[in-house]
Nucleic acid binder design. Sequence first.
DNA 1: TCTCCGATTAGAC
DNA 2: CTAACGGTCTAATCGGAGA
Length: 423
Amino acid sequence: MSAPVQQFALVDCNNFYVSCERIFRPDLRDTPLVVLSNNDGCVVSRSNEAKALGVKMGQPWFEVHALAEAHGILALSSNYALYADMSNRVMCILSEYSPRQEVYSIDECFVDLTGTPQLKAVSYALRERVSAWTGIPVCVGIGPTKTLAKLANYIAKKHPRSQGVFNYNALSPEQQTRLLTQIAVSEVWGVGRRLTVQLQAHGIHTVQDLRVTHTPTLRNAFGVLMEKTQRELQGTACMDLQEAPSAKKQIIASRSFGQPVQELPVLQDAISSFVANACAKLRAQDSQAALIQVFLQTNRFRKDQPQYSPCLAVPLPQATSDSLVVNRWAAALTERMYRPDYLYKKAGVMLSDITPSGLQQTDWLEPEPPTQTPLMSTLDHLNQRYGRGTVKVSSQGAYSAWQMKQERKSPHYTTDWEGLPCV
DNA sequence: TCTCCGATTAGAC
DNA sequence: CTAACGGTCTAATCGGAGA
């Protein structure tokens, strides 16, 4: 007897950042709206109206500016505190539908609905509930594998007739084939721009083409990942739900500057902030890092200006998560790399060689260092309780010239009393 | 020849 | 008038260095 078909659902929020903004600005319901990335750089979320006007995903804002003026497109800076909070609410509701849930990204969640009776009705109810309780519209795609659930979600989004829910498992084999023949390979999860071109060169244009390609040939030309994708398209689950987020193997904190930075002290100020961020993430997952890297970058889009993008690393004899220790090393690295004749546009700190706090290799000639200093725990608690940046290292915060541009940010509606709209 | 490592590539959102 | 282009993360693969 074969195992029952899995019912993986992918729940994806529609135009997530834009939808979050609209909850508190119902007057913007019909306004073409986009949300910009950090530093107000690129478009990362678009309302349907903005899509219809031709605004592309990831497009730099300065390119869209003229079009925006002409058609009254409103652009907002991204408000991550708001999006993270709304995301938590959505994920929390979804968790009621199954004991097995994978929060895949800020706006997407896989839910194992295997064994759920009345699957279609439940899916519609789920949509309704998320919409009623949070104001966020979502679409649901169901399939026997994560890859097919993703594809089903794409169909639910694309075809209004589906009313936001599409179940691939409910199709007959003939219907499945007919459907997959109509979808371009580029829509498959794991097939990006480059691979699309290469697949096409092999005569693979549709999802169905990919599904039926001779497997060893495919494996040979495109590697294991593509083979996995193919098997998933054939209905064999190769990817399981990742219910608990695994610890990061690498942590990066970096930012483009609001304006070019030339002076070392300003750079050091920024680096200190990045260290604080990165180490806080490190401690939040109970681990320590043994390799610290710092990088600086000039503006790569300015072909007319001299370019310099150094990166320097230091391996630590003892892994640590102490911001103060990392900060001293990072400052030294920064000073080593710094050249006064360049305009820096971006910098960052990278922590790697990460191990769980309990497992670090100790030097048996030295006394064992504490895994978590009371100072750092206290700092984390204060910053959690009173907001990020309440307690800082003294090398942080004297200069603000590097801070990112955020000229169009909405209030912290859900995470700060001050952000509540007054009635 | 084998193994390890860093750099590069491709992807996701 | 000009310049204005995100941030994090993973896994696979490739090529060279060293054993």
